[in-house]
Amino acid sequence: MLNKSSLLFLKDLAQHNNKEWFAENRGRYESAKSDLETLVDYLITNVGRFEDLGNIRPKDCIFRINRDIRFSKNKDPYKSFLSAAIGPGGRNSGRIDYYVHIQPHGESFLGGGMWEATPAQLNKFRQEVDYNAHQLKTIIENPVFRAFFPLVWGEKLKTAPKGYPKDHPEIDLLQRKQLFFMHKFTDEEVIAPGFPDRVIEGIQLLKPYTDFLNYVFFDEEEEQD
């Protein structure tokens, strides 16, 4: 569903990341953006068959290509990738969603999980792991899940978090500050006809994990009110 021309545009943008070049090639950008919108619309329709996404539209999910350079040493004005967050409320919901990243040279991926958790959310996560690690491990250690998501990204503490012993049986999970799972796609896979359905397959596998995190971070507290 994505065209080769969209990846070529991103490759060229990475080499000519300035406003003048972008202005001259805006038509190519608009074509790539339209490509992404078509993909995201397909994902919304089909993910909506097994998860309530509300009334979101592609524009609610797609991130701007402009970079925020105010506090960055890298002053490139544009991202060299296209991206979107699929989930209830779109990219600004604050909840755990499914992240789709399109970038040439085999850097495209589908990912999801705990990435920028607040201290309060980390405390909730660790309490849940301490109380009932089995539920989480059943999801993320499932052979089918791990076969699709072999890459685990994220920072860890070097020692046990405060309040937990160093010899805790779930010390690896307790040390996690981030627990984000990824499946990378080659450029050939991204432009293949079956790519959208492959992404949906991955989202279905991620859903129990995102449901777990959203419950622990948000819904469990609401139920107690």
Rank of each mutant, 00 (worst) to 15 (best):
L110G: 07
L110Y: 03
G111M: 04
G111L: 05
G111E: 06
G111D: 06
G112W: 00
G113A: 02
M114A: 05
W115P: 01
E116V: 03
E116M: 05
A117P: 02
A117I: 02
A117K: 01
A117F: 00
T118Q: 02
T118M: 02
T118K: 03
P119S: 09
P119N: 02
A120Y: 00
A120R: 10
A120Q: 14
Q121W: 00
Q121S: 08
Q121K: 09
Q121P: 08
Q121H: 10
L122R: 11
L122F: 01
L122C: 04
L122P: 01
N123K: 14
N123F: 04
N123E: 13
N123G: 14
F125L: 04
F125D: 03
R126V: 04
R126M: 02
Q127N: 06
Q127H: 06
Q127G: 06
Q127K: 08
E128Q: 14
E128A: 15
E128S: 14
V129R: 02
V129F: 10
V129N: 03
D130K: 07
D130T: 11
D130P: 01
D130S: 14
Y131H: 11
Y131S: 14
N132Y: 04
A133Y: 14
A133N: 07
A133R: 10
H134P: 00
H134Y: 14
H134M: 09
Q135S: 14
L136F: 12
L136M: 13
L136T: 06
L136W: 09
L136A: 11
K137C: 14
K137Q: 14
T138G: 13
T138N: 15
I139C: 07
I139N: 08
I139L: 08
I140V: 15
I140Y: 00
E141R: 11
E141S: 07
N142D: 15
N142A: 09
N142Y: 02
P143N: 09
P143V: 14
V144T: 15
V144P: 04
F145T: 12
F145W: 10
R146Y: 11
R146T: 13
A147L: 13
A147E: 14
A147Y: 15
A147G: 07
F148Y: 11
F148C: 06
F148S: 06
F148V: 06
F148A: 09
F149C: 08
F149M: 06
P150M: 10
P150V: 09
P150A: 08
L151G: 00
L151C: 03
L151I: 13
L151A: 11
V152A: 08
V152T: 12
V152I: 13
V152F: 00
V152C: 11
